[in-house]
Amino acid sequence: MEETRPINKLFDLLDDWRHLPAYQLERRADIFFALYLDKIIKQKKDTEIDYIIPEFPVRVGEISEKNPHINQSFKIDYLAYAMAAERVFLVELKTDQRSRRDKQDWYLQRTAQVQVKGILEGLKKIYKATHQKVKYNYLLDKIEKIGWISRTEKTFVISNINITPEILYLQPLNLTNDDAVISFDDVIAALSTTDDELAKRFIVSLEKWKSNVNKIVKR
């Protein structure tokens, strides 16, 4: 018997284990979406993406009028920047159609309202308060390469930026034809012309991941 190829075994495990009650597919599969995210957004928004930063921190106090003192952050799955078009996308990945939450939607909407400059103002306050300076320095180096900030010895100066981010939800289905939703069918379309083994096997799993794991399947 021919041994199962590692790439097939990897996706076979994801296909199987996503049906288990405590298994979080998003945390394991996000790297595959990230690998092709520039192509996915190009397919949906006709925009060339230059930079992608995962788990981008947004200061809660910056978007909450009731709690402006809070230096804790929530994380955006991916922040994507198209330099030529001057477009910023806040991308939220959901591998379960039912996992959208009103509170999270509110966080994203408020983040878009404070614009990129407000996001960076909040990041400056987090950086001042955090004890994880090494990791935040790595993040700031990436942001400086984008051109949004200039580093100083202990802080940074924010450039004159006037960009309102756009929210994108990367999820199994787009039931309302919402322009802010990238469905897995959109992802499949974006990858259909990509001639590499990983993309082809990813498409096979995406077809399965469109289905509701909570729906009873006849055996």
Rank of each mutant, 00 (worst) to 15 (best):
Q72P: 00
L14M: 12
L140G: 08
A80Q: 01
H69Q: 13
V114K: 13
N71D: 04
D179P: 11
A190N: 04
D185F: 04
I40E: 00
R201K: 14
D178A: 05
K154E: 12
K142S: 12
K133V: 10
G61Q: 00
R87T: 10
F74W: 10
Y23C: 01
A85I: 08
H69K: 09
K9R: 15
A199L: 08
T4K: 15
F33Q: 00
L173P: 08
N8M: 08
F11Y: 14
T155F: 02
L140E: 06
R151D: 00
F32Y: 12
Q109R: 15
Q97M: 10
L93Q: 03
T130F: 05
N8W: 05
P57E: 03
A85S: 14
L206R: 05
E207H: 11
A189N: 15
I161V: 15
K154S: 14
I216P: 06
I53N: 05
W106K: 11
I158M: 11
N212R: 08
Y127H: 14
N137G: 14
K75E: 10
N212D: 15
I70P: 00
Q24F: 04
K9G: 13
I167S: 06
L37I: 03
Q113I: 04
N162R: 07
R219T: 09
K75P: 00
A180Y: 08
P54N: 09
V134T: 10
L198Q: 08
E55G: 02
G122F: 01
K9E: 15
I31Q: 07
L37Q: 01
G122C: 03
E86Q: 14
T155Q: 03
I119P: 04
F89A: 07
F56P: 00
I143T: 04
L120K: 06
I163M: 05
A189L: 11
K154W: 07
D77A: 05
D178F: 04
N214V: 04
I76H: 00
D16P: 01
R101T: 13
I126D: 03
P21Q: 05
L93S: 08
L35P: 00
R87L: 09
I40A: 02
L93N: 04
W209M: 12
I216Q: 10
F11S: 04
Y107I: 03
N8G: 02
V217N: 09
V213E: 09
L35C: 03
T152V: 14
I203S: 04
R219N: 09
D12Y: 11
N162F: 05
N177H: 13
D12S: 15
N67C: 01
F32W: 10
E62H: 06
R100W: 07
T95E: 00
S183H: 05
E166V: 10
D105V: 14
L20C: 06
I126P: 01
R28S: 09
